[in-house]
Simulated scan of single mutants.
Amino acid sequence: MAILKLSITTFVLAATLAGIPGATAPAEERWAWPLSPKPAILRAFDPPDKPWLSGHRGVDLGPTFDGAPVTSPSDGVVTFAGVVVDRPVLTIDHGEGLRSSFEPVISDLKPGDAVQKGQVIGSLAPGHCSSSACIHWGVRRGEDYVNPLGFVEDLRPSILLPLE
């Protein structure tokens, strides 16, 4: 049965790399939650079927409080720190085509600044969730949005195997 389990794990990983919707990669140990303690998921990842359609291209985490420290989920380099529409946004390039973005986050960091996993990168500003303070965390692999939770949790489906 170990061979069956390996085959299923290999399929999920291959499906993830191939971009098959719904497939998720194993959690990567080099990533951590951007809020501490581990936050609740207030709104899940819900990508649109087409890039121009509406959807939720990240996750909302909280509840927390205005001014809460936000930390880098992985080592990287800041590529954007500024305002988009009416919210402060921070984007970090983690290498291997992965970029994460956080809003609303007030930060003194500038493009080109290196950050380490767990380093405070800014503070949560009000304005994203209407009922409580929360952060929107998005991750892109190249031009495609991916579920950020796949980097901090194992989202692979559970598979029951016979004992023998």
Rank of each mutant, 00 (worst) to 15 (best):
L53Y: 08
A23P: 10
K50I: 10
R43S: 12
P69Y: 07
S54C: 09
L90M: 03
V84I: 06
A23R: 11
T64C: 08
A68H: 09
D113F: 06
D60K: 01
P126Y: 08
S36C: 12
V105K: 02
V78A: 03
G112D: 01
R57Y: 00
L109I: 10
L35D: 07
R87N: 06
H56G: 06
G82K: 02
E28L: 14
F65N: 15
D49P: 11
V105W: 02
A114D: 10
D75M: 04
S101I: 01
V85D: 01
G76T: 03
G95C: 00
L109C: 09
A40P: 08
V120S: 12
L35K: 06
P126L: 07
P111D: 00
P47T: 06
S74T: 11
T71N: 12
S101T: 06
A25S: 15
K38M: 13
T91C: 10
G118E: 09
L109W: 08
T79Q: 03
F80M: 00
W52R: 05
I121R: 01
I20L: 15
R30A: 12
A81K: 02
I106F: 11
G62E: 01
A44H: 12
A23D: 11
W33P: 05
H56Q: 08
K117S: 08
D93P: 04
T64V: 11
D60Q: 05
A68E: 10
F80S: 00
L35P: 07
S130I: 14
R57D: 02
V115M: 07
S36Y: 13
P37R: 11
R57V: 03
L42S: 00
P34I: 06
K110R: 09
I20H: 12
A40L: 12
P111M: 02
G67P: 09
G118Q: 10
S130G: 14
G76E: 03
G67C: 12
I106E: 12
P48D: 04
G22D: 05
T64H: 08
V84K: 00
A25E: 15
S107C: 03
S74H: 14
H94K: 08
R99D: 10
L53K: 06
I121T: 06
A125R: 03
P126E: 11
Q119I: 11
A125E: 04
S72W: 07
T71F: 13
R57G: 01
T24M: 15
P47M: 06
K50Q: 13
R87D: 07
D113L: 05
W52V: 05
L35C: 08
R87W: 05
E29W: 13
R87K: 11
V85F: 01
G95Q: 00
F102D: 05
E96A: 15
V85T: 07
G97R: 05
A40E: 14
A125H: 04
A68P: 09
S100P: 05
E29R: 15
T24W: 14
E96M: 11
K110A: 10
G22E: 03
R30D: 13
D75Q: 05
